[in-house]
Design a protein around this nucleic acid. Sequence first.
DNA 1: CATTTAAAGACTTATATAAGAGTTAAGCTA
DNA 2: TAGCTTAACTCTTATATAAGTCTTTAAATG
Lengths: 243, 243
Amino acid sequence: MVLSNAKGSIPLYMQIKDLLVARVTEGEWVPGDIIPSEMQLARELNVSQGTVRKAITELVENNVLVRRQGRGTFVATHDGDRALFHFFHIVNDNGTKILPESKTLSCRRKRASRQEASKLNLSSGAQVVCIDRIRILDNQPTLIETIILPAELFGDLGQRQARNLPNTLYELYETQFGITIHRADEQLRAVAATDRDASLLGLEAGSPLLEIARTALTLDGTPVELRISRCSTSKHYYQNAVF
Amino acid sequence: MVLSNAKGSIPLYMQIKDLLVARVTEGEWVPGDIIPSEMQLARELNVSQGTVRKAITELVENNVLVRRQGRGTFVATHDGDRALFHFFHIVNDNGTKILPESKTLSCRRKRASRQEASKLNLSSGAQVVCIDRIRILDNQPTLIETIILPAELFGDLGQRQARNLPNTLYELYETQFGITIHRADEQLRAVAATDRDASLLGLEAGSPLLEIARTALTLDGTPVELRISRCSTSKHYYQNAVF
DNA sequence: CATTTAAAGACTTATATAAGAGTTAAGCTA
DNA sequence: TAGCTTAACTCTTATATAAGTCTTTAAATG
């Protein structure tokens, strides 16, 4: 890529931002990597350090990069707390975040339904990995999750033993498949518990459940996971803060 | 306020940020006002323009200020689309935002319940204004709202005729009462429709509804509105994007 | 002469560069 | 281990140019 500072062109710092994003999405830098220092990048790109800084600052705000004073700037990883809580909005009644445990029910391959294929930008009938699991909060089964992944990207996940699946899948996606979830769009509805829901969660059939239909995207906007969670909200709720 | 640049003190730009916020919260500048230019503020505060700029930049990101190139920097207003959509997450099935109409059922004063008083930081038994209304989306009654406001801040709202209430209350709060909603915390649950819910929304009693319990806060963190929305999600859903 | 149009200037934010002092973390050396 | 050195980000100041908005002035037009 060539930078341009001609009149009327896109600002330099934005071009640099795009360039840095490209290096991440193309795998030149992977999560956890340290990137060159601001001075190194400035020299390489023939701009001033301040311009590089502005580009990096915006990427830090977007959770793409992480700065550590005295050490350097790193590609953000989604391990630890971030993996667990950044995309997890269920808290218990007194508002405290809780560590969910997971019990995988099944993990198998199948053909994508039309809707699934459409939402994941797959050709109709493409193979997907389908994971069913229950999440336990405060020792109570609270959430039923169905996860759909393109088999193309998550090849051997379909053959894996269900028990081998870790609690924090997004960490697994990142470390095992090089796929970093960067954004999620969620659609929330209230639905009635099916018989299966009811028996898994220990409720009456027809009880109201909170259904969260999530599409998770990578940094370049590719949808790579569908996740439908049906959640009992008698002891927990979905927390959202709007600024 | 005195700025300090001593070793170990809070960075200047943050102190300036606080100072600017204070001028807004104390009403020295009100929404829509233009604030002094970066150069003027820099001279007044004895710092460089770049430092003022950094403070302003963060406040723009927080939706406190708005920049208009060639004109100046203004205190953000919540009129127009922002008032309507920034805090409104219900969209219809194909994902398009819709303009909700409102039908006010009642608007009266009463004593705050314990929970209400606690959430609004009021002394127990303080007067509150209580608004009941229905919101119509796509010509279908979809949402039942109950709104609780401290009477102390919204004095004459309780005496107002119900029909005089506009659709976008947050605009009214700002223009009539000088209260700008800056942030909202929402707690979402699935609940069963009561008989009243059911008859108002034209559903069966016991149907699952999405309940959104919102606490709305001003810039300085004071809670000034409680709002409980019970929403039929058969034709609509709650949309949330996480980055 | 009155009105419209165009140019100029002033002011503001936006972008870019440069430089120095401060803070933090890691590794090396004694 | 204690202290030093180095390298990185952080904060602040300074300066210059670009670009957008508005007002004033001047010119052109009818």
